[in-house]
Amino acid sequence: MRAVWAFARMTVRSLLRRRTVWGILIVVLLGLIAIGHVPSFNVQTEGRFVLEFGLFGLEIGALLMALGLAVNLYPRDRESGTILPLVAVPISRGQYLMGRFLGSALVQIVALLVGCVGLMVILILNDLSIPSTLLPGTLLLLVEGLFLLAVVFFFSFWTSPPLNVPLTLALFVLAQMSVREFVGLFPQAPSLMRLLRLLLPHMDVFHVKDPIAHGESVPLLYFLLACLYGLAYTSFMLSVALAVFRERDL
């Protein structure tokens, strides 16, 4: 475990040196500022608009950040040849994956928390109240971000970065669909489509921006359940990624 943490710290340092990460964070914060500056025209529900779009912006930010962080990690290690001495002696392939994932996850978590604080500042500057469920809602977005990160790692072990991005985006879009919408994509084979949908994650489990924006209370049990679901899917994706990685010739 000590080797994993040491490698994770190295990953954090190398990621923070990249301009991509800072660029995505700045874009997300600029997006939040833009949402806060949309004229309200004295509409009473302006707070809902800012919250809904702000949380949506954070979700898209989590997706972009996952792509920006992980899409190039393994391909770059492979191209530069640094992976060979790493997995030859000091760490195993599992430790390599966990170190890279934990390092990226730490950066992802901090970036999302910065985004959440940015949204709170914008709400305060617009004289709007901060709902008590905003932090648990952001926690679900964090878990969703970790899952997306695991997906990007999985794709990065058997595809090139230019293919990884559209595949992750496609999975993100398909995972937002309900069963009926997904079956409607190819209604000629409903059983097959149902089964495929069953295998895909349900991103709507992480979506609580509507109740947060409308002031509806969400039970604490649901937050815990959704976190458990997200972490379970993340661990599953990581184990699939590791199985693929272990089969690869470097």
């Binding site: 309900s178 069963v179 009926r180 059983s191 089964l195 069953l198 349900h202 709507d204 489990v205």
Partner: peptide, 8 residues
């Protein structure tokens, strides 16, 4: 098998 075991 996908009928009624999903989240719809």
């Amino acid at each position: 098998c996908g009928k009624r075991i999903d989240y719809d």
